[in-house]
């Protein structure tokens, strides 16, 4: 059974699938850019790196791309362990 998590809580180098994105929590433009960068339900993701100084922002592999985003936004993306 898959365990729901948010990306921010995902242990590093653990593959997971995006199960839900809380688009109501972000403005429409940012939600769209998130989509354009490949964040979509069903896409596999993995936390690769966390920045120094408090682990914020994160570098997340999404599909074939690596995207940097802040913890606040990473908290809006729910994943299931693959």
């Amino acid at each position: 059974m898959a365990i729901p998590l948010i990306i921010d809580a995902l242990p590093p180098h653990t593959r997971a699938l995006i199960s839900a994105i809380d688009r109501a929590g972000i403005d429409p433009d940012t939600a769209r850019r998130l989509h354009e960068l490949g964040f979509d339900e069903g896409v596999d993701v993995e936390v690769l790196h966390r920045a120094p100084f408090g682990g914020d922002p994160l570098a997340v592999r999404v599909g074939n791309m690596v995207v940097a985003l802040r913890r606040a936004m990473a908290a809006l993306i729910e994943v299931e362990l693959a």
């Binding site: 690596v66 995207v67 940097a68």
Partner: peptide, 8 residues
């Protein structure tokens, strides 16, 4: 503002 950036 938010921070969202591709890392090539």
């Amino acid at each position: 503002p938010s921070f969202l950036m591709e890392m090539p």
